[in-house]
Design a protein around this nucleic acid. Structure first.
Lengths: 175, 175
DNA sequence: CCTTTTTGTTTGACATGTCAAACACCCGAC
DNA sequence: GTCGGGTGTTTGACATGTCAAACAAAAAGG
């Protein structure tokens, strides 16, 4: 009934998630220490915004600052980053390698979703895509068959998957 | 580089999406006309919040109001609702029926994601889950095989899908 | 050493979305 | 009629996240 309210009930928001990942990346070549400027440039936002957001992030124990005003992920922050990167990889691999969504779209979609999907779903998905893209004969056969059938889908009429009229277009906003 | 900023670049926000869906549902038995109170009760928020949000929604042409202060979706609003419901159904069906995520979790996850995934991904997913849960022999065979292998995954050691150590647990935040 | 640039913070503003509380209105009961 | 409850709006407050602009301090250049 109020399922929709859980949208904001995640360990971190989209913004915080990407701040953490930016710290992680920016600090890569400097022993984990990142500067506000580097984080801001990576995220494409102003230093001021980063400064404000870091207050929140530090207060929540996801990152620490040393005397020279440099930022480092805490153990917890690093754990979150790794979990999110794993989930993104699972989603992206599924979209791109299993159902053949174009690379760019797979990138955008997995980025939107990476911090939202549950570990349960991510875990299942991870296994599934690993199986589906393996050399298991059943997996290869199913994938081949799916691609063949989908190629034959002629949109509105006579889709071999949808049987009758293909309902695909209703998912988009195309008129 | 700034892929992450596209998170907010959707036709509607999560909140607006659910306002539209609440109008749709609430109006079902009244010829499409919904009252603020009904919308608020359905969403579990105050009438005041709904009132404010409707300003935005009306201004964007997603809903109209008649003289008796009742709300109705516009053609565009209805189109958005249908698209989102379709995407949710595709995601949920995949999670629940294909990779066997528990019903409740599938519900929550699909709700979080429904307004974020692209029509391209939703369309592919829609076809894929339709194929995978059909009576096509290749699909049935692959699904059977996947379930069998996954049942044998003993967590950290000797997962038949991951081959070596199963990396599944890194997707969650379990310590 | 002094100037200039870079860096980080703060401030005031805006946008979205939420709440409680006060108001105004309409409608039905009496 | 009038009174009370349900309904819709507005107001002031808060939370998050963004910006530009002003500022202070550190680093770099000379």
């Amino acid at each position: 009934m109020e399922t929709w309210k859980k949208f904001d009930a995640n360990e971190v928001s989209h913004s915080v998630a990407h701040h953490l990942m930016a710290i992680h990346e920016a600090g890569r070549e400097y022993g984990g220490w990142a500067r506000v400027t580097d984080i801001a440039r990576r995220l494409g936002i102003t230093r001021g915004s980063v400064s404000i957001n870091l207050r929140n992030i530090k207060a929540r124990g996801l990152a620490d600052v040393d005397g020279h005003r440099q930022v480092k992920l805490s153990a917890q922050g690093l754990k979150i980053v790794r979990a999110i990167l794993g989930r993104r990889a699972a989603v992206k691999a599924f979209l791109r390698d299993a159902i053949r969504v174009p690379e760019e779209q797979a990138e955008v979609d997995s980025c939107k979703v990476e911090h939202l999907i549950s570990p349960a779903s991510a875990g299942k998905l991870f296994h599934f895509v690993k199986f589906l893209t393996s050399d298991d004969p059943a997996a290869r056969q199913a994938l081949r068959r799916f691609r063949k059938l989908e190629d034959k889908c002629a949109g509105a009429k006579s889709c071999p998957i949808c049987k009758e009229r293909c309902l695909l277009q209703e998912l988009s906003l195309a008129k």
